[in-house]
Nucleic acid binder design. Structure first.
Lengths: 148, 148
DNA sequence: ATGTTATTGACAATGTACATGTCAATATGA
DNA sequence: TCATATTGACATGTACATTGTCAATAACAT
């Protein structure tokens, strides 16, 4: 297998990797009352502290209409709450409730445990290289798309 | 960012990478009459030369019922043909027609061109490491799932 | 301030890419 | 030869979205 074929294969491996990863995530959500999509919203809010629906959509790179649905779910379940937005009366700021924060922290902590057990046998320098390559690759593929 | 966080990030990068890759693939399919799912079938047949529907399903790791639909599409479009299976009267062997072979070869060739242009600036050793890590990761995540 | 354009929430319709369940025909193996 | 498995066909279900539209409100240029 030459260099180009390896790169080609690496790109195609992204799908099985993603599927395996999401299956594990899904299992980790059992008992939390979270769906995968709700988890994604909470994770963004956990990282950014607060955000409007359009902010979250941009971060997740999906349409705001769909994020709205997800956010409404988390609001209904008490994982998030609205706060008045001084910059826009209709577009309220969404933030985690204490419960939501505890839940997403727990989920991430458990995921980290899995990652930790998986990291055994992987060289840190290789992971470094892999992350670099994957990030570069993603960017280049995205720009490849926009360009032509 | 520590080692574990890098690994965590690498795993989550699989989704954007996959989406970017599939977007590029989809663009490369313009004018071929192929859908992404038909492309997947042809690719398997291109690699394995011939296969039954359940074979393809196993390779693609999706359910045979869905593969059946995809294969029927490619049959209808003349990209594949049935051949009698000496080992099973109901389950015929599927193989590429000349047209199907030409089409998938063209698609793969063009994809390779894109990959080639993207490979500039990536070190072969890094790509090697990335492929290794990603394959290992995928396996481990899959077994993580089955185990518990 | 006023008209114009953009943003946001809400909702409906649609699409994609699958999984699941079932049936009848046919194979396979004890 | 009887029980079990495999396969094709089809119907239905589901998760994760996109697209379009409307009304309310905001932001901005004139």
């Amino acid at each position: 297998m030459n260099d180009l074929e390896k790169l080609y294969k690496l790109i195609w491996m992204s799908r099985p990797l993603m599927q395996a990863a999401e299956a594990v995530v899904e299992r980790g959500l059992d008992g939390t009352g979270l769906t995968v999509r709700a988890r994604a919203v909470l994770e963004v809010l956990y990282a950014k502290d607060k955000a409007t629906v359009p902010d979250i959509a941009e971060k997740l790179e999906i349409k705001r209409q769909y994020v709205q649905v997800m956010v409404n779910e988390t609001l209904a379940e008490g994982f998030t709450m609205k706060r008045e937005n001084p910059r826009h009366k209709r577009s309220s700021i969404i933030e985690l409730t204490d419960i939501g924060r505890a839940v997403i922290e727990g989920v991430i902590r458990r995921e980290m445990t899995v990652v930790s057990s998986i990291s055994a046998g992987l060289k840190a320098t290789d992971v470094d290289a892999a992350l670099e390559v994957v990030m570069t690759l993603t960017e280049k593929l995205k720009s490849e798309q926009g360009s032509n």
